[in-house]
Computed example of a mutant assay.
Amino acid sequence: MSWQSALACWVLRRRMRPETAKPGIDVERARRLTSKRAWLPKVPSGWRLEERYGHDAAPLRGEWLLHGQPSHITVLYLHGGGYYFCSPATHRGLVFPLARRSGARTFSLDYRLAPEHPFPAALDDALAAYRKLLADGVPPGSIVIAGDSAGGGLALATLLALRDAGDSLPAGAVLFAPWTDLAATGASMTTNDGLDPMFYGRAFAPAGKLYSGDADVRNPYVSPLYGRFDGLPPLFIQVGDTEVLLDDSTRVAQKARAAGVSVELQIWPKMPHVFQIFAPFVPEANRALEQAAGFVRRVTAAQAVETS
């Protein structure tokens, strides 16, 4: 464990975790604090950022990170934040280095948030964004869906919904500590409750209801852990071993492998939730993103060979 990672955990334990111990969910406070603390990295040299603003005829919002040279890889990124806060801007610290390392042009979706827009709004937006890529002529085998935390769960739910609808599936998915069980039944919710530097386990079930609204929290499109995994493309999962969300990753990996899905699960010791967002400060984040980028390049190259 690097001293940079230890420092990040120290800060999170003192500033972030106490917020998750408070009763109830203060949506506006979470959004305000996240917005104030958002570190906006510079656009990488040779790249450009293009924001897309939605309107009634085309409600999708988000931002493209594009390289000066054409790329044959496209990443559709879904940010975390419990489905009720954060944005593409708050996650540029993760998205930018992932795009730069993989060479992929990346669309970071600004999906609608709960409680104003509960399930299925976020899923509908993710499906619409993916289908828009296909309609624009992007080959499905050149696309990787990626996301962290709630966005990781949303990425997996998107795969389930695409498969069930008979859509062409992407080359794979990158899931950073995905939140896949909004019912919060994983054993790590208890066993890691005092070890996780960012969260108390009891914070997740109320947040799950905030997003699920009137839907069953165990609906596979809400909590993809409860879905069928057969027929899904390869999955790449990274999670910290002290996270209360650890079992949200390990149980998905187990079910997916049992269904014949290729899964690469990496459990990083003593890393906080979505530690990849601390790049370039934390060296473990840099290594993790390089490995995730390698997966993006591999699965899209394999699809290109298969198609040809």
Results as ranks from 00 to 15, higher is better:
148 D>G: 12
148 D>F: 15
150 A>C: 07
152 G>E: 04
153 G>V: 14
153 G>H: 09
154 L>M: 05
155 A>M: 06
156 L>T: 06
156 L>P: 00
156 L>E: 00
156 L>D: 00
158 T>P: 00
158 T>L: 02
159 L>W: 02
160 L>W: 05
160 L>Y: 02
160 L>V: 14
161 A>W: 03
162 L>V: 08
163 R>W: 10
164 D>H: 04
164 D>M: 06
165 A>H: 02
166 G>C: 10
169 L>K: 01
169 L>C: 02
170 P>R: 02
171 A>E: 04
172 G>P: 06
173 A>R: 09
173 A>D: 04
173 A>G: 06
174 V>Q: 06
176 F>A: 13
178 P>V: 14
179 W>A: 13
180 T>M: 04
180 T>K: 01
180 T>S: 11
182 L>F: 07
184 A>L: 03
184 A>S: 12
185 T>G: 07
185 T>Y: 03
186 G>Y: 07
187 A>S: 14
187 A>T: 08
187 A>M: 10
187 A>P: 05
187 A>W: 04
188 S>W: 00
189 M>H: 06
190 T>L: 15
190 T>N: 13
191 T>S: 10
193 D>N: 15
194 G>M: 09
195 L>S: 11
196 D>C: 01
197 P>F: 12
197 P>S: 07
197 P>M: 10
198 M>P: 00
199 F>M: 04
199 F>P: 11
200 Y>I: 15
200 Y>L: 13
200 Y>A: 12
201 G>S: 07
202 R>V: 10
202 R>H: 12
203 A>G: 05
204 F>T: 12
206 P>L: 13
207 A>S: 11
209 K>N: 10
210 L>F: 03
212 S>Y: 01
213 G>T: 10
214 D>S: 11
215 A>D: 01
216 D>V: 06
217 V>T: 04
218 R>S: 04
220 P>W: 01
220 P>T: 12
220 P>A: 11
221 Y>A: 07
222 V>H: 08
223 S>I: 15
224 P>R: 00
224 P>M: 11
225 L>K: 01
227 G>N: 08
230 D>Q: 11
233 P>E: 02
233 P>N: 05
233 P>G: 10
235 L>G: 04
235 L>Y: 08
236 F>Q: 09
236 F>S: 12
236 F>P: 00
239 V>P: 00
239 V>F: 03
240 G>D: 02
240 G>H: 06
241 D>E: 05
242 T>Y: 05
242 T>V: 15
243 E>F: 14
244 V>T: 10
246 L>R: 04
247 D>Y: 00
248 D>W: 07
253 A>M: 13
253 A>V: 15
254 Q>L: 15
254 Q>F: 10
255 K>P: 09
256 A>R: 00
257 R>E: 09
257 R>V: 13
258 A>T: 15
260 G>F: 13
261 V>A: 12
261 V>D: 06
261 V>Y: 10
262 S>A: 15
263 V>Y: 01
266 Q>K: 14
266 Q>R: 15
267 I>A: 04
269 P>C: 09
